[in-house]
Design a protein around this nucleic acid. Sequence first.
DNA 1: AGCTTGCAGCGTCAGAGCTT
DNA 2: AAGCTCTGACGCTGCAAGCT
Length: 110
Amino acid sequence: MAVIGEKTESAPARNMSAYQIHSPTSSLPQGVVTAGSPGSIHSPQPLAEEASRKRELRLLKNREAAKECRRRKREYVRCLEARLAMLELQNKKLIDEVQYLKEACAAKSS
DNA sequence: AGCTTGCAGCGTCAGAGCTT
DNA sequence: AAGCTCTGACGCTGCAAGCT
């Protein structure tokens, strides 16, 4: 829990190196390269910023969605476990009852 | 004390399914 | 068709317990 800050820096950085660092080079760099050139009238910088902003927003939303998804899953598993415990108890009671009735029948017929 | 192992939680990606 | 949401899978981290 208190660890999150550190994780978010290191783990993702590695994932990025595997995927993000490469793929963006196919789209972003074009803009970045020309951005430096003084002669360009319509600087692509805003486009790059917009793309980056959209990506950040998407990551943020997905982060929250993943948290919520996991929370729901934990809750689902908890419910399942509670139901299992209840059914096991119920099963045990029924077994006891069958046993009792069998004994009652046997006693009556003898 | 240092190492190993198992577990829980996190962020990200990819893909399926739904909505507009 | 494009955009959005949800979720399985993957890799990473920190922590606790057991072992040497």
